[in-house]
Design a protein around this nucleic acid. Structure first.
Length: 262
DNA sequence: CGGGCCTCCTGGTAGC
DNA sequence: TGCTACCAGGAGGCCC
């Protein structure tokens, strides 16, 4: 699930429920998710402290432990974040649970264990280590710097949009959405695009991601005109009702409309 | 550099 | 019913 808009939703949820809330410990049901730490180490760091601020970069969520390191949450394909009270049942697939002193819990959910929980000293340290480009919604990512980053690129547009080192935050689903709303097929080559079209892609990217990030968490609240709402077998194009098709790009299933995209 | 394939994992579902 | 194959919104590694 988690691409930039989803993680933006997680961040909002985290801010609402976890900031400035004293913690009492941690429970790790799936240790594999912990990259550079273990349950004991995490418990020692969290006990009696609070998270004071959060950041999001691409698909990563960071939460700062008072004046110390940042806890990094990366969700893989199946990650989620949930808050619940003592009398509620824990969510299924809870991998790491942080306990608050007041009895509440934060659950990092992971079914396929493709995500990661770890510590970093700073946001910059994370982006450098993971080789992340600027966040796709970063204010400083102007259309010119976007064009600059794509220049000289020879591969497919979809692959480039999903390349986290170029721009961070876009995954399979929103890459398809951006291509759909730009009227371009998934296998369009970056080099084949007129600069004008690439500028359009930038504008569509910003509009789509900010709309989806604001709809947070629930993509079912996105307009029905969005392709995201129609990722299923036998679905029809929301614009022209033509049967949608799928193709593989870098091993990932891509939905597109054969009539609206060329 | 880019594309295609494999891998890490688990679980739901289509098909036999 | 039970088994198998394949698929799923991420990402890194390898070979060509």
């Amino acid at each position: 699930m988690p691409e930039l808009p989803d993680v933006a939703g997680f961040q909002a949820r985290f801010n609402k429920h976890a900031l400035d809330r004293p913690m009492s410990g941690v429970h790790v049901a799936k240790p594999r998710l912990l990259a550079d730490t273990n349950a004991q180490g995490m418990g020692r760091r969290l006990n009696g402290r609070t998270f004071t601020e959060t950041r999001r970069h691409g698909k990563y969520l960071l939460a700062r432990l008072e004046n110390e390191d940042w806890l990094v949450l990366h969700f893989g394909m199946t990650g989620d974040l949930a808050f619940y009270d003592n009398d509620d049942a824990p969510p299924e697939q809870e991998a790491v649970r942080i306990d608050f002193r007041d009895g509440g819990h934060l659950a990092c959910i992971s079914q396929r264990l493709l995500g990661k929980v770890e510590w970093v000293g700073s946001v910059d340290a994370l982006t450098q280590r993971e080789d992340l480009g600027p966040d796709a919604l970063d204010e400083d990512l102007s259309v010119d710097s976007f064009m600059e980053r794509f220049s000289g690129r020879r591969g497919m547009l979809k692959t480039a949009l999903m390349d986290q080192s170029l721009i961070a935050g876009i995954g399979n689903v929103f890459a398809d959405e951006i291509l759909f709303q730009s009227g371009l097929k998934p296998k369009t080559g970056v080099a084949d695009l007129e600069p004008k079209r690439l500028r359009e892609v930038y504008n569509v990217m910003r509009r789509v991601l900010s709309t989806a990030a604001n709809a947070h968490i629930d993509e079912r609240t996105l307009p029905k005109s969005y392709l995201v709402r129609h990722r299923e077998a036998d679905a029809k194009c929301p614009r022209c009702r033509t049967a949608l098709r799928t193709t593989k790009v870098t091993g990932r299933t891509s939905y597109y409309c054969p009539d609206c995209q060329d």
